[in-house]
Design a binder for these strands. Structure first.
Lengths: 157, 157
DNA sequence: GCCGAGGTACTCGGATACGATTTGTCCGAGTTAGAATGG
DNA sequence: CCATTCTAACTCGGACAAATCGTATCCGAGTACCTCGGC
């Protein structure tokens, strides 16, 4: 099991957008991160559909965050790219085979599914507690405060 | 992103094996859960390689747990089937493009990768805290104590 | 000089091929149980 | 009757196809800016 590469790109793009004072087209985002423009566009499309970013067409158009970077969690981005589905989907094995449990007896979730759901909830909780603003702040600390400034400068050029 | 179906099968098989007083061949496990025998064998193979179960060849052979059900965590099984790799693998985007950070400056993990790693650790921690014995106990409670007894009886028949 | 219409260039959006990973299947190697045979 | 050998059936293990999902790409729809012409 692995997460789509698009998640990483989307997160970096959101951090970049949080530093932009103007709209940023996908061409420019792709250039900055050195990734295939056409494929990145697909991810941005997903972000747009999920309401994380807003798109503006036409000359001078591009993408912008729909709300403050502090209001966008990492989970929002992950769900937008990877879909809302759970890692683990119970196929109700207990209802199959010679010892099948009748459906009316299955009032509670299967214990296996429950365990996986609990773990997944913990995962989601952590991601929901981290915002794009947090990511940006950490990046800045790691680079001694130059990284975000460089990005802002580059975006204006 | 989704977890392999084999994980669910493997977990149920481990619960079943925890109730067995003798070796259980893959044919019988497949019959009980109503899944393709040949494919289930593949998952059991993975469990065997990971040291979760022990296999015995020849007539009267089959599988058994290598240790007590209380000593086997759900995480052990998941890792055995799905592999030890992380969901998220950082491709070091920060080292690419016009604003690439030189490698010697990358002493700390990327903040994006760190966020994902934290979330994944939380997920693993939950799964590491749940054992096959716990799963069995919960199944039994949900079925008013009949499910495991039925399994034990069926295994002897 | 000002206003408006038109064209053009640039943007995003969905539909479309390719590749990799997961899923599913098969046959061969190894081992044990049992039967047959000789003592 | 017992020990030994042989056979045969049953088990797992790794190697082999098919399907699904993620990756990558292209071309069309839409919009804003700029230019050009008329007033």
């Amino acid at each position: 099991m692995k997460l789509s590469n698009g998640v990483e790109w989307a997160l970096h793009c959101c951090v970049t957008l949080s530093q932009a004072s103007t709209l940023v087209p996908s061409q420019r985002l792709a250039e900055l991160h050195d990734v295939p423009m056409t494929y990145l566009a697909k991810q941005l499309q997903a972000l747009s559909r999920a309401g994380v970013v807003h798109s503006w067409q036409g000359q001078g158009g591009g993408y912008s965050l729909t709300r403050s970077a502090r209001e966008i969690s990492v989970l929002d981005v992950v769900v937008a790219i990877d879909g809302p589905g759970d890692f683990f989907r119970c196929t109700e094995i207990r209802q199959r085979g010679p010892l099948a449990v009748p459906e009316e007896k299955c009032t509670k979730m299967c214990s296996v599914a429950r365990a996986m759901a609990t773990a997944e909830a913990a995962w989601r909780e952590v991601l929901a507690g981290i915002t794009i603003a947090d990511l940006a702040a950490n990046i800045d600390v790691a680079s001694s405060g130059t990284a975000l400034k460089d990005v802002r400068t580059w975006l204006k050029a």
